Computed example of a mutant assay.
Amino acid sequence: MTTRELFERYHACWEARDPDRIAELHTPDSVFHVHSGQAPAHGPAAIREAAAGTFALVPDLAFTLVSLRTGDDFWVVQWKLTGTSASGPPFEIDLADFVLVENGAVKEKHSYIDGAAMQAALTPAASSS
């Protein structure tokens, strides 16, 4: 399988909101790190839990592809994320993923997100009394 084919399969799992299939596409020692203050997830079980948590937080999460570059053992992708968090209004946030591939599976996934926009989206609106 080419890196581009792995990207397509992996992205399809995210669009399907399927944490089991996402985790299956990672190596046993894989790292999944959303660089916005959380600790990285290590290994498929923790990665599955992290993905499931994302879908619980934003059930209608959607991805719009902005740009994609692939190589023999990596991909770099820029996304526009949209959705409605369980605790706030609809949002649109920029995200960049840097992914390393090993033996046809995801070895490392580093996601760089617009942290200020994400924090604003996830913070419940203050009620005015």
Rank of each mutant, 00 (worst) to 15 (best):
A23M: 04
T70G: 03
T82I: 06
H110W: 10
W79T: 12
L68D: 02
F55K: 01
Q78E: 12
I113M: 13
F63W: 06
S67A: 08
F63L: 08
T84C: 00
G104T: 15
L95M: 15
A86P: 06
H35T: 15
A23D: 01
W79P: 10
S111M: 07
A51C: 14
D97S: 12
A46S: 04
A50P: 08
V77F: 03
E102V: 13
A46G: 00
N103G: 12
P89R: 09
H26W: 13
L25N: 00
V58N: 00
E49W: 05
V99T: 13
G71A: 07
F32I: 09
D72S: 12
A23E: 05
L65S: 07
Y112Q: 05
I47Y: 00
D73A: 02
T82Q: 01
V31C: 06
P40R: 00
A23T: 08
H26D: 05
A56V: 13
D94S: 08
V77D: 00
I113P: 15
F98M: 04
A50E: 06
A45V: 14
G37A: 05
T70M: 08
S36R: 07
L25T: 03
P59T: 02
N103K: 14
H33V: 06
E24Q: 03
P44A: 03
A86I: 11
H26A: 11
V66H: 10
W79V: 13
F63R: 03
T27D: 13
E24K: 01
A86S: 02
E92R: 10
A39R: 09
P44V: 09
P90S: 01
D29V: 11
G37D: 04
L100P: 09
A105C: 13
